[in-house]
Design a protein around this nucleic acid. Sequence first.
DNA 1: CGGCGGTGGTGAACCGTTTCAAATCTGTGG
DNA 2: CCACAGATTTGAAACGGTTCACCACCGCCG
Lengths: 358, 358
Amino acid sequence: MAHYGVERQGQRGAHVAGPAVSIRDVANHAGVSVGTVSNVLNRPDIVAPTTRSRVLAAITELGFVPNDAARQLRRGRGRTLGLVVLDVANPFFTDVAKGVEDTTGAAGMAVIFCNSDGDLTKENAYLDLLEEQRVQGVLITPVDDASARLHRLRDRGVLVVLLDRRSRQADICSVSVDDRLGGELAMRHLVESGHRRIAFAGGPHRLEQVRDRYDGALQALAGAGLSEQEHLRRYDTPALTVAAGRDAAARILGQPRESRATAVFCANDLLALGVLQVLTRQHIRVPDDIALVGYDDIEFAAAAAVPLSSVRQPRQRLGQTAAGLLLEEANQPETHRHQQVVFEPELVVRESSQFTRP
Amino acid sequence: MAHYGVERQGQRGAHVAGPAVSIRDVANHAGVSVGTVSNVLNRPDIVAPTTRSRVLAAITELGFVPNDAARQLRRGRGRTLGLVVLDVANPFFTDVAKGVEDTTGAAGMAVIFCNSDGDLTKENAYLDLLEEQRVQGVLITPVDDASARLHRLRDRGVLVVLLDRRSRQADICSVSVDDRLGGELAMRHLVESGHRRIAFAGGPHRLEQVRDRYDGALQALAGAGLSEQEHLRRYDTPALTVAAGRDAAARILGQPRESRATAVFCANDLLALGVLQVLTRQHIRVPDDIALVGYDDIEFAAAAAVPLSSVRQPRQRLGQTAAGLLLEEANQPETHRHQQVVFEPELVVRESSQFTRP
DNA sequence: CGGCGGTGGTGAACCGTTTCAAATCTGTGG
DNA sequence: CCACAGATTTGAAACGGTTCACCACCGCCG
């Protein structure tokens, strides 16, 4: 697909780009010293009104744009922060990112957005990069535990806040959602709907979110007096994507009809959408033949072939809160206390799991 | 929703963060000069093997991490680049972003991801920020024309590549998809399927993408000898989101049955999903009662309630190509020639528009 | 009229790299 | 034994801001 036509234009690339104007040029042009210009920029109140306006005029006239690298070099730390997520293509994370941006944008900070893709190597590469950038801090959903690496970062002065992951150490802030509870809610709902052969699709189990949701599911089973071996079957996926969901569905449908699961709980909505896609394509009725519950309640869950039951998380709030904690720690280090914020998830029941078999 | 429990931990925030180790410390520790350390970092080949390894040892021993701000200050430009998109929450843009990341990551560059949200004020604020960061370049899908602003950027030495938008000026690279053609394909398909009352949902018309897709649709109509007034009706939306789509659907359904559109062409898939959601909820059959075509062919289009016909764009490739052009211009400014790459879209017909009325 | 407090403004040091001319070292051929 | 080329290494000058000790000036009080 996508043939394309390139149109070459005669324009040569070499561009003039006159030497950038510096604070020094502004000072000359306004007939003041560099220190004064700097003051106009940073503490306008301490410079006399007439001087100030003269400097400001020079600034606009010359089109001066301060060089943040220089500022940063002198001040020690810049005004950017890093956000490392597991998957940009997952709407869950883009919503979280929106929340982060809300908060940081208001504070005039820039976000360097990094996508680890669930790959430890990429995660590390990005952390290196962020450290070289001397970011104020990092908001991260780590691929695995990573606490050693993160503590090292901290010791070097980079603030760290865990996102969508509960911190085990009391000295690192974290903002998360109770995934065990979420898993429990979903599973209890299925059990109470009468399901006795349930599939859990999710992975990699390296991800704490996946493990916790699974553990929560187990707990719900146990709570109902049902055994894991008899009633739950795990279908591991290599990633939490639509494609992985399609694959898991194929495996589930590979089972003989009489022992096949009557309900599937997916570790996130992308998986669930993938599963759903295969089920509908094979004319398997949802929820009548197989019920389905996802996780995250992304916007597309409600718009799916069969509106998807899902476990809702306060995505945007997650991002806002995490960014807020980071900014607080950056700006009031004396009064800041590390904390683990844990939100509560909420089950949203839609058609994909609405009542069924006895 | 989302009550939450905070658990405050006794840990105070104040953290030691010993003074960052600099190239000077490394030099001392290794018994060489700073120049040599710098050489080890940047041109390892010109330093004697024994010295090199001694320096490298010192680096790891002290845990030295180069300060990019200082490097940038000296070199003039940093190793970051800005990406400004209209909507992070739109999978189209996250796929584009993935493409950008592929290319830049391989080149060891970081991406500062900015979300203008279709808001000119935010767009400008982000451009200011990127300029202060002295990014190498900016990949941007502008809210409106913006060429004045972008040229000013350019003149200050920031490379600019237009993304998903064709550049009118020959001196700026652009990577886009032929939106007129896309609109034409979609509309022709509907017309050929027999539809004679068609709705176009999209907006704001400030966005060139929207205008072009609409114009393409008009062209297809004209090509079939059908008049705009009689056969097409525009439903403007304030944004290209699912919510806006739901709203547009309500307006479309507000029409009397006999004059109501029998097909809807949406300027993007998010809108289409919103429309679809309302239609299914109101038990209006798709495509029998109303056919539907979206645009972008995001992953969720195929997994929708009724698999969505859509106009596919090479999203990831768009990002890769744009980033590639930028890097090329940055690294070989002498040989670089500005160019406008235009990809061709492709109509993907699915159930939402599969044949219908005579 | 001299001393004084306060307001504005100055200028040089410094942040951590890169870069480059100059210094030093190592062999080598004469 | 020396001049000389090539290979390494050195040291100091930028880069563009922020910061801070210090200076100049002004009006006021005693």
